[in-house]
């Protein structure tokens, strides 16, 4: 965080984390990856995902990197978000995964 955002960052500098199980049949393949990155880009918060609680973390706003995670159905997706709208971002990410990206 830059100093200019210090006052805001004060409340949100600790990243929020949560996880959800991938329920859609094909896992995080091309189409869900696109949906996930499109959703992530709506937020200013830094959003990362991983297959394990301790990473390695992948930028959720990069469609190429998200596809490379190759998360299969049944995998647990861990999210780590930091930023002013982090809470809303995390809720949106979890909702998307729970809904199976609209394709279950």
């Amino acid at each position: 965080m830059h100093d200019a955002h210090a006052s805001r960052a004060g409340e949100t500098s600790v990243p929020l984390t949560a996880s959800a199980v991938l329920v859609n049949k094909v896992g995080l393949h091309a189409r869900p990856s696109v949906k996930l990155t499109q959703c992530a880009k709506k937020f200013v918060a830094k959003i990362e995902l991983a297959l394990a609680e301790d990473g390695p973390w992948t930028d959720a706003k990069s469609p190429v990197k998200v596809m490379r995670v190759k998360a299969p159905q049944g995998a647990t997706l861990h999210f780590r978000v930091a930023g002013a709208d982090g809470e809303a971002a995390l809720a949106a990410m979890l909702a998307l995964v729970h809904d199976g990206f609209g394709e279950v």
Partner: peptide, 20 residues
């Protein structure tokens, strides 16, 4: 094309679209 369009749909700059 899919990745560039995904990047573009989020309002990214031309440079960011190309990079992605």
């Amino acid at each position: 094309a899919v990745i560039a369009a995904t990047e573009s749909s989020g309002g990214s700059s031309l440079a960011a679209v190309k990079r992605s």
